[in-house]
Amino acid sequence: MTETRQPARYTEYHPRWYRSRVSTWWWLAQWPYLKFILREISSVFVAWFVVVLLLQIRALSRGSEAYAAFERWLQNPLIVLLNMITLFFVVFHAVTWFNVAPRAMAIRFRGKRVPDFWIVGANYAAWAAVSLVLAWFLVRS
């Protein structure tokens, strides 16, 4: 670990205590921390999706020619690549979100805490159902 290599920090009244400083790159040092940062970074891709969605709405509002241009823009290889990365991150967000749901909310039924498995399972089932309904609305040829 690099943190111990840094100079000791002066501690008032206790100048002889050794204090290490946290490296700026602490989140690279261990896999769980990197996973945490990736989870937080997923929010940037959530925001990117909002931008795409609003651009679509704008194009729809401006007429069929503007919308055709928007569809061509989506076929740009760079945008496709960006959207592939975005898909990875938004799925990562969904999975990490559902997996911690039972911890963030202690749901009780008949005086007992509902097992994590059921809460996570219910979330995934709802996710599948919501996705199907939305797909039903959007997939029309």
């Binding site: 959530v46 999706f49 795409v52 969605l53 679509q56 569809e71 989506l74 076929q75 945008i79 496709v80 959207n83 592939m84 975005t86 898909l87 938004v90 799925v91 967000h93 969904a94 979100w97 559902f98 709802a126 996710w127 919501v130 996705s131 939305l134 797909a135 959007l138 997939v139």
Partner: peptide, 20 residues
């Protein structure tokens, strides 16, 4: 976070990849 987790993956899959 809840909203995004439930709906964005399918939206993005369709609009960003499957349709184009």
């Amino acid at each position: 976070g809840v909203f995004a987790a439930f709906v964005i993956p399918v939206h993005l899959f369709l609009i960003g990849l499957a349709f184009p």
